[in-house]
Design a protein around this nucleic acid. Structure first.
Length: 426
RNA sequence: GUGAGUGUAGCUCAAGGGUUAGAGCACCGGACUGUGGAUCCGGUGGUUGGGGGUUCGAAUCCCCUCACUCACCCCA
């Protein structure tokens, strides 16, 4: 096949992206900082498969949710099983807990994971078909202190990644006891003013009246301003949980706004719901969203184990992160002649054993071209091997940043390179 | 899934019906005998996103399609 045909016929699937070496550094830094921070709080990584039985999400994410009804990558495998590329991570963790009886381990269970998720959605900025989430889940801890813990942890990560101008929105969506009453009242209120709503909201009034709060239409906003709020319907237990959650947030000195109209899109949330939004992210402004799901494990036939978690969108996160990429330092080998080339191949091996990145290019060049090349590639050091050096067994090492030059054996030069590294990092 | 906008070289952009679609940067090579960033010269690279139509003639006008962007929707 010609490259023309390749270009025409084979390209990355819509909504998916290659992450090229230039950008992948940012990903690695974000991922390693996330791991570092989560481990500081006692969270451990749990890796679940990318593919799961379709029923897992139908049951967990919710059969009526948008994600399940129109956004899943579902296919039948050769064994006739219905398989789905996970659109979110929480159901997988719940499955793993039940399957491996992880609830028998000391609780609370604290897990994290970083990986790709898949949703068949119309791509736009901050929304892709394969996207990546940093995911946190805690099981078996009812204390709202843990609700605040994960919010605080999210903020620590954001700060560590240089994310500024964020707003934390919190709410309680109640529980099985108090939420239904609120839902009825809200629907009643919405239907009462139905004729004043836009066509879209008239539909929402039937299906999901909570969504009317989000409408940008002026008439709808006005009509919605008189709607009842969940915060006025919470049962005493939920009210207390929400109250304490906020007290812990205050203890951490975290700024937040109570947003009584905040609903998470997934059906399973109970009590705490929160979202962290960033400015300058356009319509897809939520970089982190999460909440409590106290009934999910039980509904899967597992133990009565409460849960809470959040997901961060890595692509969104990186688009607002300000990460300084540390300069890479490596040695470029400038040689003259075939004998010198062979010597360089040996020397490079020795330097790599010392933990020093070394690059020997195989094309014979003039000295000037070697330097030009080293400069272009961003080498911090150039190690020169010519006839003189071969004879003496001592080599020239040039510091490309400060234009200083040293002479010595491999180990002496290695010490100079490492010495500078140590100086820089201390 | 709906609406709007944009698609010209790897990147940033010219050419707005009329020869063979250009420039800068990048890349490769040359000038430069064992010391870089500069300069000068040259080269590779495009069926103008793809397909169809109108026309003597289309990058340019029309239709379809695909991708991207924005908004809706949804959510991370």
């Amino acid at each position: 096949m010609s490259t023309d045909q390749l270009k025409k016929e084979i390209s990355a699937i819509k909504g998916t992206h290659d992450i090229l070496p230039g950008e992948v550094r940012l990903w690695q830094i974000a991922e390693s900082r996330a791991r570092e921070i989560f481990e500081l709080y006692g969270y451990r990584e749990l890796r679940a498969p990318v593919i799961e039985p379709t029923e897992l999400f139908e049951k967990g994410t919710g059969a009526s949710s948008d994600i399940v009804t129109k956004e899943m990558y579902t296919f039948t495998d050769k064994g006739g099983r219905s398989i789905t590329l996970r659109p979110e991570y929480t159901p997988s963790v719940v499955r793993a807990i039940i399957e491996h009886r992880l609830d028998l381990q000391p609780q609370p269970l604290r897990y994290y994971y970083i990986g790709p998720m898949f949703r068949y959605d119309r791509p736009q900025k901050g929304r892709y078909r394969q996207f990546h989430q940093i995911d946190i889940e805690v099981f078996g801890e009812k204390d709202p202190a843990v609700d605040a813990e994960i919010v605080e942890m999210a903020h620590r990560l954001l700060a560590r990644l240089g994310v500024e101008r964020v707003m934390t929105l919190v709410n309680s969506v109640g529980c099985k006891k108090c939420r239904p009453a609120y839902g009825q009242e809200l629907r009643k209120a919405a239907l009462a003013v139905k004729d004043r709503l836009c066509p879209d909201c008239q539909r929402k009034a039937e299906v999901n009246p909570l969504r009317i709060f989000d409408c940008k239409n002026e008439a709808c906003r006005e009509a919605a301003s008189g709607f009842p709020l969940i915060t006025d319907f919470l049962c005493p237990e939920c009210r207390e949980h929400f109250q304490k959650f906020r007290e812990y947030l205050d203890l951490y000195r975290l700024e937040y706004r109570v947003e009584p109209t905040l609903v998470r899109g997934l059906d399973y949330y109970t009590r705490t719901a929160f979202e962290i939004v960033a400015e300058h992210l356009g319509a897809q402004s939520a970089i982190c969203g999460g909440g409590r799901y106290d009934d999910m494990v039980k509904e899967f036939g597992g133990p009565d184990l409460c849960g809470i978690g959040f997901a961060m969108g890595v692509e969104r996160l990186l688009s607002v992160a300000r990460i300084q990429i540390p300069e890479t330092s490596f040695v470029y080998f400038a040689y003259l002649g075939q004998e010198a080339k062979k010597e360089c191949l040996r020397l490079a091996r020795a330097l790599r054993s010392e933990g020093i990145e070394s690059l020997v290019e195989f094309k014979d060049r003039r000295m000037k071209d070697h330097f030009s090349r080293a400069n272009k590639l961003g080498a911090e050091w150039v190690l020169i091997v010519g006839e003189d050096e071969l004879r003496k067994g001592k080599f020239q090492l040039k510091d490309m940043v400060n234009s200083r030059q040293f002479e010595g054996s491999v180990l002496e030069l290695a010490a100079i390179i490492k010495g500078k590294k140590i100086l820089e990092t201390t």
